[in-house]
Design a protein around this nucleic acid. Sequence first.
DNA 1: TCAAAAGTGTTGTTCATACACCCATGA
DNA 2: TCATGGGTGTATGAACAACACTTTTGA
Lengths: 253, 253
Amino acid sequence: MKNNKRSTKDEIDFLKTYDASKYERPSVTADIVVLTLDSSDELSILLIKRGEYPFKGCWAIPGGFLQAGKESIDEAAARELKSETNIDNVYLKQLYTFGNPGRDPRTTVISVAYTALVPKHMLDIKAGDDAQDARLFKIKYDVNGIVFTNDGLTITESDLAFDHNEIIRMAITRLRNRIDYEDDAFSLLKNKNEFTISELKRIHETIKNRSLDLPNFRKTFLRDYVSSGKVKDLGKTVVSKGKPARLYTLIEE
Amino acid sequence: MKNNKRSTKDEIDFLKTYDASKYERPSVTADIVVLTLDSSDELSILLIKRGEYPFKGCWAIPGGFLQAGKESIDEAAARELKSETNIDNVYLKQLYTFGNPGRDPRTTVISVAYTALVPKHMLDIKAGDDAQDARLFKIKYDVNGIVFTNDGLTITESDLAFDHNEIIRMAITRLRNRIDYEDDAFSLLKNKNEFTISELKRIHETIKNRSLDLPNFRKTFLRDYVSSGKVKDLGKTVVSKGKPARLYTLIEE
DNA sequence: TCAAAAGTGTTGTTCATACACCCATGA
DNA sequence: TCATGGGTGTATGAACAACACTTTTGA
């Protein structure tokens, strides 16, 4: 798309002698808010316990430094996600870029934050190089803000490393605001090619943190997705406790 | 909010010996899509003609390198905006971060893009240090995408430096999608403390690129802004060509 | 036959859209 | 008085929410 007719001899000479170090350069990281629904359909986040300074011993969201020149930021995020959870090819969208001086005590660090939505059964959580531990925490709310719980372990927002509480807040808020317009919820299905309306409804309920009316949910689902061809009725049903539920499949474009 | 109880002697020692250069660092810039309504109420953008390589002589959106350590990215964007247009205290929101390798021929450059919405009379455009020229271009569309015009001068998307066409596309799309829910349009008013409904309607029309029904626009305006107290009726009118129009004022929170 | 979950139908309200019409001003 | 833009009122249909009711299964 971009033409190259500007690459004159002048420009080539300029590039040869360009001193890349004349500007003060910050470090850049890609950090990822990995969200999933746990086995009891509650919104959960992947946190790692930092094994190194700064914030050694604190819980943080996974992430790492961009290998400048070798990869794009999106690729850096995907690489970090893979190294922490062993997953590939999932919903991974840029969220926001954080760059206040002082957010990292070492030096200026610009963090490009991403949101990943992953079905729990695809997560293969492992503590990486610089993490002592990695776990899924349920996301709950109380007067002091977000609370993260994993069995007996409870962490509050202010216990997190860096400004990661801010990043997580933004990820949840954005997800909630977009859920009605974007197709984000499908990314959290166990199987995008065989799912029921109730399953999708539970995902919406979890993200919005309130219960929804099934008849109305069904109506909008049929109108917005089935009628438009984005989702197809498989003509099969699956047995559960009550009446068997119809199965649908997502048509990826 | 953040506690400091982690600053043990260990951590202090670590920070002293931390080698900031052990990771490959990219350059970071803040680039700004400055949008306004020109004298004929058409959507316009500020472009600068680059005075230096790379892309010397090409038109581009204003921007510049982050002075890492000295300022946040938001501050860098505000500083660059001020240096190009001499304006302060305007709508300036982070848009997206671009970081594909090869987008800048010099070295890896991460660009954090911002959108600025500025009323035209506040713009004091001047060519800065590294710009030969700076002008407002009308934004039009044709089969090949966006076309930028300034009197006799016409530029197409693919003439722009770097991936700036992508950045501009995203800025316009985002603005359009958000205009009904966010209060962005107010930022383009000549005077937020004294404006008429028609004035605000013209801004919405320009951004959406279609005409709106005045009676209906008035109804939603009264419901969404006046009834909720975000905007107050000044009880005054202003003379124009026909019936004098009622004046409203925006209540900034 | 009963509980549980899927699925259908009805009703009332809110909201967007289209549009007919009236009002106040300057020329 | 007429053109011009401001402002009011009304009718229609879509979207949304609440909820009563029916269906199909396993236990």
